[in-house]
Structure formats: C-alpha cells, structure tokens
C-alpha cells in the first residue's frame, strides 16, 4: 500500500528467504527487489499479528532455507520446485496469498505492469481514451431493433452464422 518500509517484523535471514520465495512465486524479471521486499515486510507484519502465524512463517522459512542452502543464491528452478513440493501446506498458502495481495497492490508494480490506478483527479478517461481501440471497427452500441428469441433456438440465419466460427474456435481450443 505504501512505499515506506514498515519496521522489520522478522529476522533478516527469514526476510531474505521469504524474498527468494516471493520472487519464485511471482517471477517478474523486470521488477526490481524493492516491491518484493515491501511485500515481504507487509507479510511479516501480517504474521506478527498472531503468534501462530509468526511461528508458521519462521518454521516454513527455516525449512526452505535448510532445503535450498542459501535461498537467495538458489536457482529459480530450485525455488520453484521447493514451492511446488510444499503447495497445499499452511506455510505455502499463507505466503502465496499475502505476497500476491501485497505485491500487486504496490504502486511501483502498477507502474511497471501498466496499471495507472485512480483516474478521477485526471478527469477519468472521458477525454483520455476510454474509447480508443484502433485495431477493431466501431461496434454498434444501441440495442438491435428486432425481437430477441426468448424460447427455442436462434433464428435460422443467426444460428448458421453463429455455428461456423464458434465450432472452429471450439475445435481449436480442444486441440490446444
């Protein structure tokens, strides 16, 4: 939420293990460590609210560190494999959810991924491209002035138009 660093709520070793796991949970090569570190700090603060969660995080991070050696130096593949092996466990569930929650709520991440956030102070998008999509034709916005089929199949012409491309796409999906 904020870019200020919250007070550290876990020891440095735990934090650096969590950082290594966070980067494997949500790997974005173009995002620097800062947002991940902030997400870890916020996770640690969340865990600090409960002694059970604090213990869960401490134990899980210690187990990961023991398995990975220096987690910060472990390969992405090794960290991912460790996470996959522990998916479904309470430590994984807590860390995954909290990192996802905090990382994608970080303003630097928004900027890097192309989400501008609030627009009200800028006048919304009424004059800033809410309708700009140059790669497709302008569609109708009014309702069609013909009755909607409410019972039974679509009319013959509509049905034949609908069937062909739909079937082709459905086939593509099945084989994909």
């Amino acid at each position: 939420m904020t870019e200020d660093q919250p007070a550290p709520a876990v020891p440095d070793a735990t934090a650096s293990t969590l950082l290594a796991l966070a980067r494997a949970l949500y790997p974005h090569p173009g995002i620097p460590d800062g947002p991940y570190e902030r997400a870890v700090a916020l996770l640690a603060a969340d865990a600090a609210a409960s002694s059970e969660l604090s213990a869960l995080v401490a134990a899980g991070a210690a187990e990961a560190a023991a398995a990975l050696g220096d987690p910060g130096a472990a390969s992405l593949e090794a960290r991912t494999a460790w996470l996959a092996a522990h998916e479904g466990e309470a430590f994984f569930a807590f860390v995954r959810e909290r990192i996802c929650f905090h990382l994608y709520d970080d303003r630097e991440v928004w900027q890097l991924l192309g989400y501008p956030g609030p627009s009200y102070a800028l006048g919304g998008y009424l004059h800033r491209g809410f309708d700009e999509l140059p790669w497709l034709p302008d569609p109708r916005v009014e309702e069609l002035d013909e009755p909607l089929v409410e019972l039974g199949p679509l009319g013959a012409s509509a049905a034949s138009e609908a069937a062909a491309p739909a079937a082709a796409s459905a086939g593509a999906e099945v084989t994909a």
Binding site: D131, P139, R140, E146
Partner: peptide, 16 residues
Amino acid sequence: RVFANGAERVGYRHYA
C-alpha cells in the same frame, strides 16, 4: 469494443 466485435463475428446480434 473487443466484446461487441467478438459477438458480431460469432454471429450474435443482441449486443449493446
């Protein structure tokens, strides 16, 4: 614009 063009191309008529 994405949604309505897609609807049109699969043969739907009642989009708005």
